[in-house]
């Protein structure tokens, strides 16, 4: 984990009586697409928000290049992120949305037009965000993540709302971003989406990591009949539940 760009170490967080994070620890390495999987409530989104400095953890650290997000200068040039693609001011055009983000990082209109081109939003750039389809909003969110040409990308459910063509496009994009040496963390609740995209998978359950391995390894360590990541995942999460019930401390591969 020493070469990881993003290091999550022992995160704990409670929301009232609910334990959201219970010792979450993993790393995201450059040059790879790291899938972040787990059932709803496993703590994926909370972990991402803590990494991005939006939520504060009760315990533990989440560092990007050795520093917490809030200490980054021009953060969009170091970490690009996509959390909720629908978080837009409906009256503002897609291009203007990217424009204010660019200004916040000291970037100009040329970079805005470049990412609009890159995500294929040119025809919709002057449309108001309120009139964009979910797929177009997703592309706009990805454009915002790419705006600062960052070495680290963190995306929460980027496949949501995408048509099949869009899913193919985003897979290729994520792979090409990783191939350029960027660290890419992608969460999804659908393992099938990650199977053809991720090099490495972190599986979360009940606020902690229950598996952290390459896709190849996840598939091969399992018995021969498990041909898909989805099956491996289902077995893992079922095991995790069993371990916790028995009070066993760890379940990792």
């Amino acid at each position: 984990m020493t070469d990881a760009c993003v290091v999550v170490n022992g995160l704990r967080k409670r929301f009232g009586p609910t334990i959201a994070l219970d010792g979450m620890s993993f790393g995201v390495r450059p040059g790879l697409v790291t899938g972040f999987a787990g059932p709803n409530g496993a703590g994926k989104s909370t972990t991402m928000r803590v990494i991005l400095g939006l939520d504060a953890a009760d315990e533990g650290t989440a560092l990007i290049g050795g520093r917490p997000y809030r200490d980054l200068r021009r953060p969009l040039c170091q970490v690009g992120s996509l959390l909720d693609a629908s978080a837009l001011q409906p009256g503002r055009t897609a291009r203007d949305h990217l424009m204010w983000l660019a200004r916040s990082q000291g970037l100009g209109a040329r970079r805005v037009d470049a990412v609009i081109e890159q995500v294929g939003l040119r025809t919709a750039a002057r449309r108001r965000a309120g009139g964009l389809s979910l797929g177009m909003r997703q592309r706009l969110g990805i454009a915002a993540a790419l705006l600062g040409d960052p070495p680290v990308l963190i995306m929460d459910e980027p496949f949501n709302g995408m048509d099949p063509e869009g899913i193919i496009w985003i897979r290729a994009l994520l792979r090409s971003l990783a191939a350029e040496g960027r660290a890419v963390l992608v969460s999804s609740h659908l393992m099938s989406e990650l199977q053809d995209t991720a090099d490495h998978v972190v599986v979360a359950g009940r606020g902690r990591v229950i598996a952290d391995a390459s896709v190849a390894r996840l598939l091969e360590t399992a018995s021969g009949r498990r041909a898909t990541l989805e099956e491996a995942y289902l077995e893992l999460t079922r095991d995790a539940a069993g371990f916790r019930a028995a009070g066993a401390p760890e379940a990792a591969l």
Partner: peptide, 24 residues
Amino acid sequence: MTVTAPYRPDPPAGRDGFVPVLRA
């Protein structure tokens, strides 16, 4: 797993501080 050199973009031109926040 392919071994890739970490991505090191050229540091973009522009300022850090209050002015970019204000312009945003």
